[in-house]
Design a protein around this nucleic acid. Structure first.
Lengths: 218, 218
DNA sequence: TTAAAAATTTAGATTAATCTAAATTTTTAA
DNA sequence: TTAAAAATTTAGATTAATCTAAATTTTTAA
């Protein structure tokens, strides 16, 4: 098995490459893992030796097939635990990320498959992110950032690009939770902020920064 | 917070002192933590610096009040997770120990208190061991080893002294699970093995070694 | 096209946890 | 009471993961 640290690097590389296996830079990994570039370089050599990544000096990395599988498994565990925390223990969607960061490293395929069944094989976690099945397959819904919508376009909130508590609480306060229907009523030229009709009953204005982090299905 | 390793040492010391805070030796810790005595000495210095143990060179250790609290908290987590695995995910009592060894290090008081409520605040884990409440209090029932019973004495199986899968499976095969009523019908002088009447319906003979690890309430 | 800036790697050090072998202290048993 | 055995500690080394500072490579922009 891989160490917690190795698992965190694999997960970071997977997320940074958008699941597309595009090349990821040393610095970007350093940023999301809260380490220095020099530390990342050391770890990349180790992961390359273990055949988890393709690494060319100065050129960045991609995950190998084995590396992708390992990363997806960690993500599966993370998301299933998040569902457990929200559905069974009553946590709110903005409270589960940090605990799931710990739980995702628990090592037992049986445990996670039984948890999956216990939860009713959920398709998505509390933030709308899809949950890979036990073979590693999962469907990415085609989601669009609210910031990319044109005036008049409508959609249903189905995901977020930012999992921090402060952001999720803000969305909650605005009533912009998963499943909410929104329609763009106005694009403000001055600062890029966006006016929304929410569930046909209220109006909300959100900043461009917020809009970039809300995903809708059209 | 303490590292996983530190937590494992605290737990080991707590168990070795039988919850009584009797003095524990370096070698005994080395044995249960699967390390060498020299490594234990190093760690004891560290734990003493952190005021988690009282340590006198060559004389052994006891836990401080803070150390006891920390140890009890780890045990609380371990046992609650075991209940979860058995009651909610359908694991058998001989399958949960190793997974709980990992889960016990997850760090969130809220998580564990909510898990406790979710499970209905159980008093004991699947092996009959009592679960400390959130303030660290728990009741030790007065349990007696079957090997200490006299001929004719009866009791209800309420705990075990050994948590290995191979031992628990053996008990299951013999029908000697928690809640079973037993009565000693014969003490075999030759090898110390013991004949039992089980639930007034069957007879079983167990070795002295097995009898030492089954606990009954009289 | 090339000098400066940015990104990355290398060299050498540090911390936590571990080890073996040797030294020291305590315990045991004659 | 004391020599031998057992238990424990010390000294010095190792591994995983990290760091800073310096060196190298790549990219950018004039």
């Amino acid at each position: 098995m891989h160490s917690f640290t190795e698992e965190n690097y694999l997960k970071a590389i997977y997320h940074l490459s958008d699941g597309n296996n595009t090349v990821v830079s040393t610095n970007s990994i350093a940023e999301v893992t809260n380490t220095k570039a020099a530390s990342v370089t050391d770890m990349l050599k180790k992961l390359a030796d273990k055949k988890l990544i393709h690494y060319v000096k100065y050129q960045g990395v991609t995950l190998t097939d084995v590396g992708v599988k390992a990363a997806i498994n960690i993500i599966r565990k993370h998301r299933l635990w998040e569902v457990f925390l929200v559905e069974k223990l009553g946590f709110k969607w903005d409270e589960v990320h940090d605990i799931a960061e710990e739980l995702e490293h628990i090592n037992s395929a049986t445990l996670i498959d039984r948890l999956d069944d216990f939860l009713g094989n959920p398709a998505a976690d509390p933030h709308g992110d899809p949950i890979p099945d036990r073979t590693g397959n999962f469907v990415h819904k085609k989601l669009v950032k609210v910031s990319d919508l044109k005036e008049g376009q409508a959609g249903t909130i189905s995901g977020v690009n930012e999992h921090s508590s402060v952001f999720l609480k803000h969305l909650e306060k605005l009533g912009l939770t998963l499943g909410t229907k929104i329609r763009v009523t106005d694009l403000i030229e001055f600062d890029g902020s966006i006016m929304l009709n929410v569930d046909e009953i209220k109006e909300r204005t959100i900043s461009r920064e917020v809009a970039k982090n809300i995903l809708v299905i059209l």
